[in-house]
Amino acid sequence: MAQTATQTTSGTSYPIDIWGLLIALAMVMVASGLSWLMHLGIGKTLLWSACRALVQLCAMGFIMGYVIKSGNPWLVLILITGMLVAAVQITLSRAKGVPKGLAGPVLLSLVITMLLMISMVTELVIRPHPWYAPQLVVPLTGMLLGNTVSALAVGLSRFYESMKERRNEVDTLLALGATRWEAARPSIISSIRLGLLPTTASLASSGIVTIPGMMAGQVIAGGDPLNAAKYQFVILASIAALTLLADTLIMVMVYRTCFTADDQYRDKPVVEHRKRNR
C-alpha cells in the first residue's frame, strides 16, 4: 500500500506497515469488547465487518495496482463492470421489502449515472491522458457507486414502505381520479429526499466539520491541499447531482410496480416483464 508515495509530486507520504493494520484492527476489537460488556449486541458484526473491509480493500488495492500498471482499457472496463454487478447486488440486498426483479432498473440507473460521471467529471473537468486513466476512472466510479448504492437502497426501501403506509391515501386519491403518478408522488418525493439526505449533509459539512475522504487521502499522500480541495468539490458536487438523478430514475422506473395496468393499487408490488400499455 506504499505505492502512493511514487505518485506524489511534492512532499512526503507515510506508508502504513503491517503493524499499522494490526493496531487498527485492535481498536475495533477493543470497541467490540466494550460493546460485549455493555450488551449492545453489535460487537460481532463490527468485528466481522472490519475484517471483511480489510480483505476487500486490500484485494481492491492489489487489483487496482495491477490495472493501473497494465494501463489496459479492457481491464478497466472489466473492473468497472464487476463493481457495477456488485453494486446492484448490494443495493438489492440492503433494500428492504422491495419486489423481485428490480436488478434491471437498478443496473440501468447505476450505469447511466456512472457513464455521466465518467464523461462529465473525467473527460470534461480533469481530461486525463490516456482518457481511460485507470487511477482516475476506477476510484471515481467507486466513490460514485458508494453513494448511489446507499441512496438507491434507502430510496427503494422508503418508497415501498411509504406506499404500504399510504395505502388508504393512495386508494382515496385514485378514487378521486388521480393517475398512478399523482397517487404515488408523495411517496416518491419522500423517498428521494430521504435517499439524498446523507449527500446534502456531507456537502454542507465538508470543509468545516469534516475533511472528506478523498481530500484527506490526497493531503496525507503529500498532495497540494488546495488542489485536493478542488478535486473534492468536483467530486462532491457531481456525486450530489448524480445521486439525485439515480434516485429519480429508479423511482420513475419502479413506481408503476405498485399499480395494475388499469391504475389500481396492488397489495404486493409486481415487476411486469411486458410492454407498457401506454
Binding site: N168, E169, D171, T172, L174, A175, L176, G177, D262, D263
Partner: peptide
C-alpha cells in the same frame, strides 16, 4: 380509469383527509 372514476366515484368507509 381517471375519466371513469370522476363519473363513478367511490367514497371509502374511512375518511382519508389529505
Amino acid at each position: 380509469p381517471q375519466q371513469w372514476r370522476c363519473s363513478v366515484a367511490y367514497l371509502p368507509q374511512k375518511p382519508v383527509l389529505i
